[in-house]
Structures are given as structure tokens and as C-alpha cells.
Amino acid sequence: MTEQPMVRFDNVSKRYGALTVLDGLNLEIARGEKVSIIGPSGSGKTTVLRMLMTLETINDGVIWVEGEPLTHMERNGKLVPADLAHIRKIRAKIGMVFQSFNLFPHMTAMQNCIEAPITVLGMKRADAEARAAELLDMVGLSEKKDHYPSQLSGGQQQRVAIARACAMRPKIMLFDEVTSALDPELVGEVLEVIRKLGREHDLTMLMVTHQMGFAKEFSDRVCFFHAGKICEQGPPSELFGAPKNERTRQFLHAVLEAG
């Protein structure tokens, strides 16, 4: 028996009124695979992550996580739209880091990291704190654990956000343009943490990024999105080295020119 893909988008579409954001998306991501999504703005790439995190509903198709439907559930052998309890069960496998950090401003770095483990996973405070301390150490912020988000730089806030997401022990991590809101000199420290995460943890990672260099070096596969569809995908060496599609070439040319 072949191993189930970690995530499978099965003919998934997303529309806002007359506007089709994603058009019949089919995408499989293997366990432990690191996939980067690139493409021009408005190509639907962020929507892919948001649908997987259940922040957006889908109009057509099914999303599967480890062979189980996320957006649907089975009832009498048929797939029906999932209820909240089912979504929460499957969603527990997924974590997300946002472009604008979205730390809780009324909680310290430590409190941000233990909130969900205590309330959602029902962990004991001491255990949650021990795990959070480890994670804050991993992102290099042990000393800032009692700081509030407003006291941290953007790069530090984003590293706390990564620690917070990891504290829920997800199997899949989603990174949505996590360096786009940062000053250029702070981008490196965040990317370094993501690299470390990739090395040390057994995580499936899906990231939307504008950092072409990082996508090339870090990912196993790169998907180029255009107008709601995957236009081209492949190993970074191929996609960046010898893009087959004209649109991919144009996009890479424009991005590298600007970078």
C-alpha cells in the first residue's frame, strides 16, 4: 500500500461571486515535503493556504488530510459538508504563520505560546510552559518570553508566532508570506528559524513566498500559480533553472529583475 499523501486538493474551486479565485485545483503534498507556492498577486496562492486552514470555505471539491476529508465527512458512505467538530479534529494537524503575525497583543510571548495548548489541548500549565520555553529557545527568544508583542521587533514577533504555531504540534505548517511585512534586515532571522524547523522537525511545509532564493534553496518542489491554476510545478532546480512555461519565465524574469 502506498503511503497516503499528507494533503490532497481534489478538484477544489473557490469563487467570490463572479470571480473565480481557484479553478479546479488538484495538488498532492507528501509527508515531510516542503512545497513553495509562487506567483503574481491575485493568482490565488494565499487562498490555497487559507482554505487548508479552514479560514475560507470552498465551493467545489474536497480537501483531504492524511486520507481523511477535511472539508467534508462521511455519512452513510457519502461525503457531506463537515460540521465544526469534524473540522476541529482534522484542523488540529495544521498550524499557520501569518504575514501580519497576528500575535495576541494582550499576552506576553510566553502566554501566546501556552494559550492554545492549555485551552485546546488541555495541557497542564507547567507542561505547556516547559514546551513553550523550549520552542522560544529554538527561535532564539528565551530572553523575551515575558515581553508583550508591542515590545518586540517585527522579526521577533514573527519568530514568536512560529513558536506559537509549533506549540500545537501540527504535522503540517503553513507559512503565508511570513516575511512580507518585515523590514529587509529582519527577513534573515525569520528564514533561519524556518530552515531550522525544517531540519529538526518532521514537518510537512507549505509556504507562499516572494523570497525566490529561499524557495530555491529550501523547498523540494515549487508550484507556480497563475489565474487560479497551477501553471507549472517541479523541483526548484528545474522550475528556476529551465522553466518550460512562458508565463513562468515572464514572472521569474520580472521578479529577478526587481530583486
Binding site: 486552514m53 479552514t54 479560514l55 476541529r88 484542523r91 488540529a92 495544521i94 498550524g95 499557520m96 501569518f98 501580519s100 503575525f101 497576528n102 500575535l103 495576541f104 497583543p105 494582550h106 494559550e115 492554545a116 485551552t119 485546546v120 508566532a161 506559537r164 504555531a165 500545537m168 503553513l174
Partner: peptide
């Protein structure tokens, strides 16, 4: 309260009452 706060709480898999009580209402 900023939309991102709801989204972050969803990504942390909180239930609606948990989000309200712990994240949204304090803000």
C-alpha cells in the same frame, strides 16, 4: 478587533467560546 486575531485563534484550533473569552473579549 482585528480579523487576524480570529484567524490566528482558528489556526490554533480554538473553539468559538474559547476565542471569545480568551482572545477577543479581553481586547
Amino acid at each position: 478587533v482585528a480579523r487576524g486575531q480570529w484567524e490566528a485563534s482558528t489556526a490554533l484550533n480554538m473553539s468559538r467560546p474559547q476565542m471569545l473569552r480568551r482572545i477577543i473579549l479581553p481586547q
